[in-house]
Simulated scan of single mutants.
Amino acid sequence: MPIDINCDMGESGDALALKNDEEILNYVTSVNIACGYHAGNHTIMHNTVRNAIRKNVQIGAHPGYPDLEGFGRRNMDVSAQEIYNMIVYQVGALQAFVAVEKGVLHHVKPHGALYNQSANNIEKATAVVNAVYDLNPAYVLYCLAGSEIVKIAKAKGLRVYEEVFSDRRYNADGTLVSREEPNAVIHSEEEMLIHVESILTANEVMSVQQKKIQLSAQTLCIHGDGPHALTFAKKIDALRKQIG
């Protein structure tokens, strides 16, 4: 199966960002739509769902911590039950918009700190997996390649797309470099293309410790809130087609 190219969307009410979101849909195969807790709102959710259906792009829910001020990227100490409830609540809202547009919800991808904290924390990972499974066992869970949540989800019976990132740097243990570090994000188009080509052709990334990491991934993420999101989407789409 050719690798899926996903993009986080619906995370800003800015007119230019919304225009970029719509154009990015021409270059990706799936989207993860913010559900109002870390970003987005009911109108942005509905419009993004409509646009994705019109462009025949697979739709996913992108639930996060209730942290608009911190864009969902601040760690929160919440119980497993709270994580379960907040995922059901947010995904349920997006499900409704997909239903009224007669579309299909394909996957769920946790956002930001929730994504990172649940990747290798058994209790949090189990809460995420149970919430997605209870909503619909046919949903695909998008999660960090090589992480513990992958094993938990598969044991539960969920389909999983292990995810790699086009614009993030990696530690030698396969985790993402914290966004609190200055080198967490790839901004250079040239570096991004070298990084993505290595993923597409060799299933590996180079860590910041200069160690090659093997990662088996089914989906590649472009962060839609990044300043280079549209340019990166175009370049990655062209590279993917070139490699075949």
Rank of each mutant, 00 (worst) to 15 (best):
M1T: 13
I3F: 03
I3T: 11
D4V: 06
N6G: 09
E11A: 11
G13I: 13
L16G: 02
D21M: 05
E23G: 11
V28L: 02
T29W: 00
T29C: 03
T29M: 02
T29R: 02
S30C: 13
V31F: 00
Y37L: 15
H38T: 08
A39D: 04
N41T: 11
N41W: 06
M45L: 10
M45H: 07
H46A: 15
H46M: 14
I53M: 13
I53A: 07
H62N: 07
H62P: 02
Y65V: 06
D67H: 04
G70K: 02
F71I: 04
F71R: 00
G72R: 02
R74H: 04
N75S: 14
D77I: 13
S79A: 12
S79N: 09
A80M: 05
Y89E: 13
Q90C: 12
Q95W: 05
F97W: 13
V100Y: 04
K102T: 15
K102L: 13
H107T: 13
P110C: 12
Y115F: 09
E123W: 00
A131D: 11
V132Y: 03
A138K: 12
Y139G: 05
Y139M: 13
I149T: 10
I149G: 04
V150N: 00
A153P: 02
G157K: 01
Y161F: 15
E163G: 05
F165I: 09
D167N: 10
N171A: 08
E181Y: 00
S188M: 06
L193Q: 07
L193K: 12
V196F: 01
N203I: 05
V205A: 05
Q209A: 15
S216P: 00
H223W: 01
G226Q: 05
L230F: 03
T231I: 14
F232R: 11
F232V: 11
A233G: 04
K234T: 14
K234E: 11
K235R: 15
K235V: 10
A238Y: 01
L239C: 06
L239F: 03
